[in-house]
């Protein structure tokens, strides 16, 4: 017993070092553990920028700096408005669509909530955004985030008034995407080098892919609506030993100039997950 006490007294500095590092690694791995298949990575409680201290600091900071981006944010929104007007005139009878109630099972599947980006980075290996809305405004973990021009990321942490978003520019980000022409599926990842490009892999060589082709979200991911524009093919690299192309995709979202974004909630998510769980359970029973 005295031996142990003497040991701690003699080496208290090293013991403290090991204990504190252990605590750090505990936080680190807690932040990395995937929570469920769809929920990506979730971050533990208060230790992210959604907490009230960091959140309100970034909000105040953004209150000052957001004015510098105002012009480009306005341009983005005006462009989006024009695009939506064009889509609207394509619809056969818009008035009928709009009158239908939101609970219609064949009508609206996705609900969009506006949010302001109050913190953002593009030069790390793991980039995050902080939004000025949280649980009280209906945000929850696992919801998708899109910008007027394209896709942004996925919510991984929420507090009452703020939320943290894993940017597409994150080394752990993965998304199923497809070619608009032809409909071949592949996986999108970011290699941590350039905020303008992502890589689309696993597109079979049998497909014809040309620079400029549009890449859209596939319906396989339940986080985003199907067919959202992600980016355009920049360069096609055939891998000699494989049957697949690796495609460099130029993102349609300018991550350096994000002002307003939309948080996407899937109104049918609960129904679908329940259905899947029930099917899984009844399968197990046999």
């Amino acid at each position: 017993m005295y031996g142990i006490i003497a040991f701690f007294r003699k080496n208290y500095f090293a013991v403290l070092f090991v204990a504190l590092e252990f605590l750090c690694f505990y936080f680190l791995f807690q932040g990395r553990s995937p929570k469920g298949e769809e929920n990506y990575y979730h971050q533990a409680g208060f230790l992210n920028s959604a907490n009230s201290v960091a959140g309100s600091f970034y909000k105040a900071y953004n209150g000052v700096t957001s004015y510098f981006n105002l012009k480009s944010v306005n341009d983005q929104l005006a462009e989006e408005n024009a695009r939506l007007h064009n889509n609207l005139s394509d619809l056969p009878d818009t008035s009928k669509h709009l009158k239908e109630p939101q609970t219609n099972p064949y009508g609206q599947q996705f609900n969009f909530i506006t949010a302001q980006v109050i913190d953002n980075s593009t030069n790390q290996i793991s980039n995050y955004l902080t939004l000025d809305i949280g649980r009280k405004q209906g945000v929850s973990e696992g919801m998708g985030v899109i910008a007027p021009g394209g896709l942004v990321g996925v919510v991984i942490g929420v507090s009452d008034h703020y939320s943290v978003v894993m940017s597409m520019l994150h080394k752990n980000f993965q998304l199923s995407a497809m070619l608009k022409k032809g409909g071949a599926f592949g996986t999108l990842t970011w290699k941590g080098d350039d905020f303008r490009y992502v890589l689309l892999s696993q597109i079979p060589k049998s497909e014809t892919v040309k620079p400029g082709d549009t890449i859209v979200s596939s319906g396989y991911s339940t986080i985003y609506p199907k067919g959202l524009v992600i980016g355009y093919v920049e360069e096609v690299k055939p891998i000699p030993t494989q049957y697949f192309y690796t495609i460099k995709v130029r993102l349609s979202t300018n991550f350096k100039k994000l002002g307003y974004v939309y948080v996407v909630s899937d109104l049918m998510k609960k129904e679908r997950t329940e259905l899947q769980e029930n099917a899984y359970k009844s399968n197990e029973g046999k």
Partner: peptide, 22 residues
């Protein structure tokens, strides 16, 4: 440790800065 943890909070890096500071 606490300095690193505070910076981690703002950077969303979860213990990385704390580990480096310690």
């Amino acid at each position: 440790f606490f300095t690193g943890l505070t910076v981690d909070m703002f950077y969303n890096t979860m213990g990385v800065n704390a580990a480096a500071c310690v």
